[in-house]
Design a protein around this nucleic acid. Structure first.
Lengths: 345, 345
DNA sequence: TTGAAAGCGATACCAA
DNA sequence: TTGGTATCGCTTTCAA
């Protein structure tokens, strides 16, 4: 059996409190006694206070939970998510707090249980909002949390709609009218490829809703409206899914002259699928991940690490002023070579 | 005050055990009573059993710790580390276990404390071995652990030396003799750029030692030996550091005809720094991360996710057979366009 | 099917 | 400076 604090106390011939003090309140006992206690502990093979017991007694865990809506292992596939996480880690690091990455099992009950059982002092919820159940569980536990989108008491996001409109305006300004929108999992079970949608509001995920709405705003300004807009559904936020969604679209008559993607990853996938044709079709992304620059992708930049860092900070030292917890970060249109004027035909 | 299990018990008029059973042993009480308990709990706002208390009582945390030697936020900068983590996450996900990412503060005492205080059931130690202190703390706590390199009871690594030799042999086969080796933090405080080293064994980090030794093996086979080998030190495993290390090297007389880097990231940095000259100098990497393919980098592939996945599995369900815990994964030389025969001059 | 009692391993107050 | 005592919130035999 691994020795406990009590064993050390017995061995030294002092009380538990004194041993405890030797570890976390050196000033509460004489240096000599402390040394004696620590030495004995070492001899006994006592590994120091049990973290779980300490957490229970002290009432906090020393870790914050990070919740990704999709499968945890997918999060590492998404370059934007990784940079967000890097930001969270940087803040946690400075604060001396650990990060608990909680995988969400597929079953609803089990996913709830995962959030219920996380030994953390708060949550950083990436990209949820649709995942209301998770927020409910967190609220139920009385834990503080930060999301990456409004509405919430504390969030750090961007103005999705305005940002999306900025790229779309750019494209419209280049003369594009036949434009396809490309987004991930627009409707829960939708197949890859063209999807009929009444409007942006019908999209399942709030982020997607915002971006599609922004795209549509720009198109509406030049007379292109739902449901005439071509919407392409990707079954996942990955390059492959992006490629899959646009496949075949340009084979028919009267193909679009541009693709507005709701993420860089999807846009890069679209470029993959376009191959040679990429020279004539304009494509835009969203996020400005590292790969975007290399591919010459026109996109909207949002500060990724910053978002994660601020989210974690909002959680770790909450602002005194309530209103200060609702943050919209600036975005910036980054024009590269993947967009050009509509070819005259 | 947040209600506890006891409060629910009191409210319903049953004992704590019964409430506990309602949560974790539904078969131990009548459905009717269970429903009554759960309903009351909801009314009271009881969030379910406290995870920390449960962990303490049950004796396990339901999480595994992940330890990166460098700063945690840097880990997300390294594409190989990210893929490793993705593998770990995939295994954890399947196992219903969370991942605790533990940041290591800079101070020695504090770093120890971070490992001592992690409420986990075991550790996945990425790339350590030199970080013996961490392994000592983990052993002291009596927790199981897996590393990414021997020696250890359980590890999943590659034959660094042989893998390194395979790229180096390729380069030597192309006629290169004046070759510069490029590695990260070869000696603790070394400045960026050329570094005099007696031999591979002098390198600080075991992984670096293995790779440099493999490179040197190939060179030795054609009569090039330490300390005549040009070694370039990068101050960090990043593209920028790679670029910084090779800067100026090709300005002088008799520059190397090739650069053997200990990681893809460094190699890509070298290519950045070479610019135009990259067409005449051969460069190789190590790992085969995604960016390597795009850049046409010749490199050694090692299965990244696989490594993480297996490491986590080794931890989560340890093999009955002790010897089965020591795994060397296969590697593969991937020849692309960044290497070519020595130009005749 | 339900309950009583005994911890899990530690911390913090207050008194000595 | 040290020790006694209560408690953190829950799970788990074992007996009723």
């Amino acid at each position: 059996m691994r020795p406990t604090l009590q064993d050390v106390a017995t061995a030294v011939g002092v009380s538990r409190s004194t041993v405890s003090n030797a570890y976390c309140r050196p000033d509460q006992l004489s240096a000599a006694l402390r040394t004696r206690i620590l030495d004995t502990a070492r001899q006994l093979g006592y590994p120091g206070p049990n973290p779980t017991a300490r957490s229970l007694r002290r009432g906090f865990a020393g870790a914050i939970g990070v919740l990704f809506t999709s499968q945890l292992s997918y999060a590492f596939t998404d370059p934007f998510a990784v940079r967000f996480l890097a930001g969270v880690a940087a803040a946690a690091e400075r604060h001396g707090t650990s990060l608990l990455l909680v995988p969400l099992p597929t079953g609803a009950t089990q996913a709830r249980a995962a959030v219920e059982n996380a030994a953390v002092d708060g949550f950083c919820v990436y990209c949820a909002a649709d995942e209301d159940w998770a927020l409910d569980v967190i609220r139920g536990r009385g834990l503080p949390f930060v999301t990456t989108a409004p509405p919430a008491d504390r969030y750090v996001g961007i103005d999705e709609r305005a940002a999306a409109r900025s790229v779309a305006d750019h494209l419209v300004g280049l003369g594009h009218r036949r434009v396809a929108l490309l987004a991930d999992t627009v409707l829960p079970e939708a197949p890859p490829g063209p999807l009929r949608l009444a409007g942006a509001d019908a999209a399942r995920h709030p982020t997607t809703r915002g971006r599609l709405a922004g795209f549509a705003d720009a198109l509406a300004a030049v007379g292109v409206d739902w449901p005439d807009i071509t919407l392409l559904n990707a079954t996942g936020n990955s390059r492959a899914a992006g490629a899959g969604a646009v496949a075949g679209l340009f084979a028919g008559d009267d193909p679009p002259t541009a693709v507005l993607a709701a993420s860089d990853v999807l846009a890069l996938g679209a470029l993959d699928a376009l191959g040679e044709r990429a020279a004539t079709v304009s494509v835009t992304g969203f996020d400005d991940v590292a790969e975007a620059a290399a591919a010459g992708l026109t996109t909207v930049r949002q500060p990724a690490e910053e978002k994660g860092r601020i989210a974690a900070e909002l959680l770790l030292d909450p602002p005194a002023d309530d209103a200060a917890g609702q943050i919209l970060l600036p975005t910036e249109l980054v024009v590269r070579t993947s967009t050009r004027p509509v070819p005259r035909s």
